[in-house]
């Protein structure tokens, strides 16, 4: 018989402007798991603010505690639910949070998307989303290298053509 799952953990980048979304997500997790502890993962900077917003405990990320340490901590807790707060549109981030959610061994995973209500997502669906994002990596790398390479060669050329007081350095 497996150990009993307890509490919930909120994953967020805690950007300014996301206060209401964080508060709402904490409220939702609390209503899903009445009477159980709701913690959040935050940095040294955001930890006091997350506490003010309603997180009963903050698992601090950074300042010596890397992503692996956070995952270990979460796996040890085996939370009943994990929630991910997403930022504004056009930001592909959150892959890191999604990976942490998948690795956390949580019973349920919720996504708190902008302007939408909480959405429960299955592990398979989240895994598919993560795999899709990972598949984009080589393409992004190739396009990024081509664009940056061209831009930086052009900048270097402009510099060489400019001459100048210390042109010998170039």
């Amino acid at each position: 018989m497996g150990r009993e799952r307890d509490g919930a953990v909120l994953l967020t980048f805690a950007r300014r402007g996301e206060e209401e979304a964080i508060r709402e997500a904490l409220r939702h997790l609390r209503s899903e798991l009445p009477g159980r502890q709701v913690a959040a993962v935050g940095t040294l900077v955001s930890a006091p603010v997350l506490r003010e917003l309603g997180a009963e405990e903050v698992i601090v990320y950074g300042g010596g505690a890397g992503a692996r340490a956070v995952v270990r901590e979460l796996r040890g807790r085996a939370p009943a639910a994990v929630g991910i707060v997403y930022g504004g549109p056009g930001f592909s981030g959150h892959l890191k949070l999604e990976l942490v959610a998948l690795a956390s061994a949580a019973g349920r995973i919720y996504q708190f998307l902008e302007d939408t209500r909480a959405r429960r997502v299955g592990r398979g669906r989240l895994l598919a989303s993560v795999c899709g994002k990972l598949a984009r990596v080589p393409l992004c790398l190739a396009v990024g290298a081509a664009a940056c390479g061209t831009a930086l060669c052009w900048l270097r050329l402009r510099q060489l053509m400019a001459g100048g007081k210390r042109a010998g350095r170039a």
């Binding site: 056009g90 981030g93 892959l95 990596v137 992004c140 790398l141 290298a145």
Partner: peptide, 20 residues
């Protein structure tokens, strides 16, 4: 470094979106 960012953005994401 900047060529690597495009990939980092998908891998790590978050703060800030380097590709954009």
């Amino acid at each position: 470094a900047q060529a690597r960012w495009a990939a980092d953005d998908v891998l790590i994401g978050g703060l800030p979106n380097r590709t954009a």
